[in-house]
Amino acid sequence: MPELRESPNLAALYPKAVLTGFRRKGGELPDTSYTLPAVALDPEHLAAYARVCGFRLTDQLPATYPHVLTFPLQIKLMAAPDFPFPLAGSVHIANRITQTRPLTLADQPDLRVHVTNLRQHPRGQQFDMVSEAVVAGEPVWSDVSTYLRRGGGSGDRSERREPPPSPTAIWRVPEDTGRRYADVSGDRNPIHLHKLTARMFGYPRAIAHGMWTKARCVAALEGRLPDAYTVDVRFKLPVLLPAKVAFQATPSADGWHFTLHDPKKGKPHLAGTISRETPAPDA
């Protein structure tokens, strides 16, 4: 398991991944894992992230925040020559985060990332990028990001679209949301930045990051969540910027169900659940 001395430089990795990725034609996933030890957390960066996503300013990390810390390690894996799929065109379709306790600015977690579980999808192939934050030898946070590489597949899509629920809130999402989130996350995929660069990849306008939409939904429930929980989302249709979106949240026996959809057309952007996660008993 290679141990890194510093977080990978995304400004260098992105052009490399784009320039070399189009030569890739599939294959097996690499067994490479990366570790970044004892990461010092930056209060100014955390505050900037909180402002972009709608969280309160505290020394406790939102459950979605460590994703941006592990993202450079994910891109390093996906930019490597032995990765079978190009970064450009790989679509983030789902994300599941579990925390057994909140991380705080006083923690210095070890970050770990690997890729696994290549499998078929009706529209191609999918795989999981798995990230962990470890404190004192114990994982306290984990993230499974599922990506789709389109092409082939059975084409069998049995999912039915349900009528949208009555919204809890209506949010306006400004045109610069992609650029603002890119500044704090490092995710400068061109589809999120400007209309012209998004058109190069088939989108009429820039689209919001999926992880921004997830973070914004979690922020709307801040103060009503336990210390240990799992938040699991499926990304549906992209949010074209600027936008107006409808958020809806309903309590469940184990936590919450929530959705994000177009308030006029009812088209779904995201569907998720939050469930209580009970920490394992001490050995």
Rank of each mutant, 00 (worst) to 15 (best):
A133S: 04
S166A: 14
F55T: 01
V184Y: 09
P66W: 01
L260S: 08
V39L: 15
P30V: 10
H92N: 12
P30N: 07
T98G: 01
E222H: 13
T32N: 07
K236C: 14
T250I: 10
T70R: 00
I75Y: 00
H92S: 11
K236V: 08
A38D: 14
A219C: 11
S166Y: 04
A136D: 14
S90I: 02
V134C: 06
L193T: 10
F235Y: 14
A80V: 04
T58K: 05
A63I: 15
F22M: 14
A253H: 12
F71V: 01
A80Y: 04
T98C: 04
R23P: 02
T250V: 15
P174D: 11
D110T: 14
G210Q: 03
G255N: 09
E175M: 09
V144S: 07
V68S: 03
P8F: 06
D227I: 08
I170Q: 09
S166D: 13
P165Y: 10
K25S: 13
E138P: 00
P238R: 05
Q248T: 13
D143Y: 01
G255I: 10
D227G: 14
P72E: 03
R216E: 04
M211F: 08
L148K: 03
R224V: 02
P163A: 13
T168M: 05
P102K: 08
A219K: 08
F258G: 00
A206Y: 02
T100E: 09
W141T: 00
A228D: 04
S90N: 12
V233N: 01
K195T: 14
N95M: 07
P81H: 07
T278Q: 12
T273E: 07
I93Y: 05
I207M: 03
L13F: 11
S145I: 05
S185C: 06
L193I: 13
P102I: 09
P226S: 08
V113S: 03
D254V: 12
A12P: 02
V245E: 01
F85C: 02
A215C: 06
P62A: 10
R51G: 09
G137S: 03
D31F: 03
A48P: 11
R96G: 00
T100P: 01
H192P: 02
D59T: 15
S142C: 05
G153C: 02
R5H: 12
N9W: 04
E159D: 09
K265A: 15
V130E: 03
N9R: 13
G26L: 08
H192K: 10
A136T: 05
L87P: 00
S252G: 10
M211V: 03
K236N: 11
D82I: 07
A198M: 07
G26Y: 10
D187N: 13
A11E: 13
D282M: 06
G223E: 11
G137N: 04
G153P: 03
D232Q: 11
H269C: 10
V68I: 15
L10S: 04
A79N: 02
I97R: 02
D227P: 05
R51Q: 15
Q60H: 13
L260Q: 04
D107E: 14
L225H: 05
D183G: 10
H45L: 15
S131K: 01
P242K: 13
R172G: 11
H121N: 07
E277P: 00
V18I: 15
G202S: 06
E3Y: 06
A88T: 12
D143C: 12
G202W: 11
R23W: 15
Q108K: 15
P122E: 02
